[in-house]
Design a binder for these strands. Structure first.
Lengths: 152, 152
DNA sequence: CTTTGATTGTCACGAATCTTGACTACTTGG
DNA sequence: CCAAGTAGTCAAGATTCGTGACAATCAAAG
């Protein structure tokens, strides 16, 4: 990869995008192999934060950092594909709860398996203790960096 | 990218996207404050891997993981904006070297300063040793995860 | 030297994706 | 009741990406 004599140490942004795209590549390829070939990385903004008991679109927007309009179209697509459905929120008649269907739950389960296997590879290579340490530091850095941004 | 049932520990994909977007947010906001308000995160695929002595478009595509057509349009825009210029590659008449101009070098310098300050914040919070350790592990994970992907 | 196959960069077109503003329905607090 | 804020949607425009094709050049084999 480093073809230049002076291998500049990659910064946090380069590392993040590298890891994100490679992660998505493996995840969605393997999801497709398992029959979930109609979801794309874009849908991850919803699927990654979906809760079995349902979650509000606004909450999804906050968690994923996407605009609520984008969440709306993603939910539209995933609803058409049969992964989830909208139900009225009993506690707020403005809101609707985004709930996974049977297929949605199956996808979540498959995704979790794939991700667990993926992370286990790294954990085995680095050692369990080191990997756990890494994830803890990663979480800390991500959360603190996020505080810089002003999300609506 | 699925949520874990019990510990609700964010996975590698969630963490990567969280960090990437927050990182880009701070970097490009501060670049704009310094006068570089005509570059967007999209251009990072070129600017992040630009070398003072020039680099080929194909190499940029490989490093950034983007298609060469995308690199082409990005280089077009950055050339129009005065950040870089195309020069013929002396060693290969098919190829062209993408070289930064004065403004391009100034941007690279500013970006490096901003990123250094950004990372120093995390290093101060976590301690220098821990942060260095984190980046080393991050680099290792990103590189190994990338080996999964097949880029054209 | 010539042929064959691979590589470099570009053009063009359609698809996918994001941004912005505005709007209705509903909730909250005074 | 009334004003202000929130949840979700519609619509239009801009941005960004994916795909196939192409001429020019290189590299290797014959």
């Amino acid at each position: 990869m480093a073809t230049h004599p002076e291998p500049d140490e990659p910064d946090l942004g380069v590392l993040s995008s590298l890891l994100l795209f490679a992660f998505q590549d493996e995840l969605f390829t393997k999801l497709a192999e398992r029959g979930f070939d109609d979801v794309r990385p874009r849908h991850g903004a919803v699927l990654a934060y979906l809760a079995p008991r349902g979650i509000r679109a606004t909450h999804l927007a906050l968690r994923s950092g996407q605009h609520k309009q984008i969440i709306g179209t993603l939910v539209d697509e995933l609803e058409t594909l049969g992964y989830l459905e909208r139900r009225p929120d009993p506690t707020d008649r403005r809101a609707k709860l985004v709930c996974p269907t049977e297929r949605g739950l199956a996808q979540m389960s498959a995704a979790r398996e794939i991700i667990t296997a993926l992370e286990s590879r790294h954990a085995e290579r680095l050692g369990d203790t080191k990997y756990r340490q890494f994830k803890q530091l990663f979480t800390d850095v991500a959360i603190h960096q996020r505080q810089w941004a002003t999300l609506d």
